[in-house]
Design a protein around this nucleic acid. Structure first.
Lengths: 111, 111
DNA sequence: CGGAGTGTATGCTTTTCATCGAACACTCGG
DNA sequence: CCGAGTGTTCGATGAAAAGCATACACTCCG
């Protein structure tokens, strides 16, 4: 049979098309999540596990932020052995909210 | 001397150029403020007084929302007799955050 | 000058959200 | 099969934000 890297419950994802502007904006209006999105944008897809990000919060809070990012259609996750790796949903999100992601990525780190 | 419609303290304004993305997103991530911006976008400049908007909050809360909108560089206000009239800073905001305002204006009313 | 209309400021609830610590679940390597 | 590594869940806490009611300030009109 095919590969089967995990027996865990797959994370719930929301497609950007099913996300309201308000939800998208709220998801991006947080300094920690902005950091996550930026770091993710500068990395290869599926190369970053949740714990590999340089943000000043504990893992419980971090886990919560990924829930929000998934719920806004910004991030896709996949279980790979013991860790959960991430991908920024650039194209899909861009199609739903043209220009929005670029605004966040281009801007200088939060002052 | 020239006209002088008010002796009141002029409202404080922030230019979009001095606004961070995070602040801009936070300002637009609220249902009441989204309504205000949309209504404002559909009206002539300087035609709407603060109290003329159809939002389900008292006037104290409303006043607060306008403070936030001014602080994000989204709205400009001017005193005109007893009332304070508004203008959406379309061009300036668009120059600072290309596409952002359009996203909010195009989208269906918050579900 | 006094009253109606309009908006702001203040003080106080209520809600929401970010955070943490601790406990639990799953995967992999010995 | 146990232990280390990783991430989620739960409960509690603290801070921020939104709300309201009231009181105040300013403008206009009679």
């Amino acid at each position: 049979m095919a590969q089967r890297t995990s027996h865990r419950a797959a994370p719930e994802h929301t497609h950007p098309d099913d996300v309201s502007v308000q939800t998208a904006l709220a998801a991006l209006a947080d300094p920690v999540r902005i950091s996550l999105v930026r770091e993710l944008a500068g990395s290869q897809e599926w190369s970053r596990s949740c714990g590999s990000f340089d943000v000043p919060v504990g893992k419980a809070a971090l886990s919560h932020h990924f829930v929000v990012l998934r719920g806004a259609g910004l991030v896709e996750q996949r279980d790979e052995g013991p860790r959960r790796v991430n991908r920024l949903r650039r194209a899909e999100f861009e199609a739903r909210f043209p220009g929005l992601l670029d605004l966040v990525l281009r801007d200088e780190p939060t002052v």
